[in-house]
Computed example of a mutant assay.
Amino acid sequence: MGLSVEVGFLADLIANDPEGAEFAFVDFERMDEALAEKGLEPLDEPTTGEDWSADLLGYSGLHALREVSGYVWKGRDIPRGILLDGSQTDLSEDLATEFFEHLSGRGNFTLIGKAFRQIFKAKEKPKLPPFTHLNIHSDCDGYYVPVAFETPIVPKRVTSDSEHLWPLGSVMRLEAELAQLARHLEIPADLRHDDEQLHALIDAPDRTQIAALWTAQPIATHSLLVLREACARSLRTGAAIHFC
C-alpha cells in the first residue's frame, strides 16, 4: 500500500467528488473546533484552486525519515553503512514515548532528580522533544494545517468518526523540523523529490565518505523532499496538507 501527500484536497473534492466533499467539510469543522479550544483562528481552506499530490515510498519511506529524526534527537551520527528503509524504528519510537511522557508529566529522572522533585514537590514536565510534528501524526491519514502551534493537537473529546484527524499537525512546525533534518542530511536547497539521481540512489545508495550524507540515505531524503514541497505549497496557497 502507498501513502500520498496532497495539498488542495478539499478543492479537488468540490470539483470532482461533491459527495466526498460533504464529508471533508465535516472534517474541517472538527479541526476548527479543535483549534478554537486552543484559542487559535479557524482555517480558511481554499475551495478552488490547483490540487497537488506526490507519493512517498510507501509508509516505510516516512518511517525512514522519522528514524533519521531519532538519530538527530539522540545526537548520534546518521549512518552511512546502513540504509534506513523504514524497518528500523527504535529511535523514532523512543522519541514518541518521550513526547507522551512530556504530556503526562512523567519522565526518566535520575535518583537525585527524583529526590529533589519529591522534596520540593516539583511539577515540571519532561522537556518537549524535537520533531514531534513529524513523528506524532498518523502515517496514513490526517492533516497538517497552515497554523502555527507548538504541540500536535488532540481535542478534549475524540469520537470514533473523527479519530482519523488526530493528532493535528502544524505546517509551520513541520517545515522547521524538515529544515533542521535537511541540514543534517546535507540536502541541497534545490533538490526535488523526482530527481533522477535520487531515484537511482534508492536502489544503490552512495556509501563513500566524501559524498553528501543524503546520498547514503535516499529513502529518508525522498520523504523529506515530498513533505518539504508540500509545506511550501501549503504556505503559498493556504491549503492544508492531507495524508491519504
Results as ranks from 00 to 15, higher is better:
216 A>S: 15
122 A>S: 11
201 L>G: 02
216 A>L: 01
1 M>Q: 14
67 E>Y: 12
187 I>P: 10
67 E>K: 02
229 E>N: 12
113 G>Y: 01
154 V>N: 06
160 S>R: 10
41 E>I: 03
69 S>V: 00
97 T>N: 15
103 L>E: 12
17 D>K: 11
140 C>Q: 15
199 H>Y: 13
131 F>M: 06
15 A>P: 04
8 G>Y: 12
201 L>N: 01
27 D>L: 05
66 R>F: 11
188 P>H: 13
158 V>W: 10
113 G>L: 01
75 G>W: 08
89 T>G: 08
48 T>W: 09
193 H>V: 10
81 G>T: 09
150 E>F: 03
116 F>G: 07
17 D>A: 12
198 L>S: 07
171 V>L: 07
34 A>W: 00
231 C>Y: 05
28 F>L: 13
96 A>W: 07
128 L>H: 00
228 R>H: 09
165 L>C: 05
93 E>W: 04
36 A>V: 04
192 R>G: 06
244 C>A: 15
58 G>R: 04
243 F>P: 03
76 R>I: 00
230 A>L: 03
188 P>R: 14
227 L>G: 04
157 R>D: 14
137 H>T: 10
8 G>V: 07
116 F>Y: 11
35 L>Y: 10
156 K>C: 09
134 L>M: 13
184 H>N: 12
220 A>I: 02
206 D>T: 09
136 I>P: 11
15 A>C: 09
222 H>V: 06
162 S>R: 06
174 L>P: 02
180 Q>H: 12
73 W>M: 09
240 A>R: 08
179 A>Q: 14
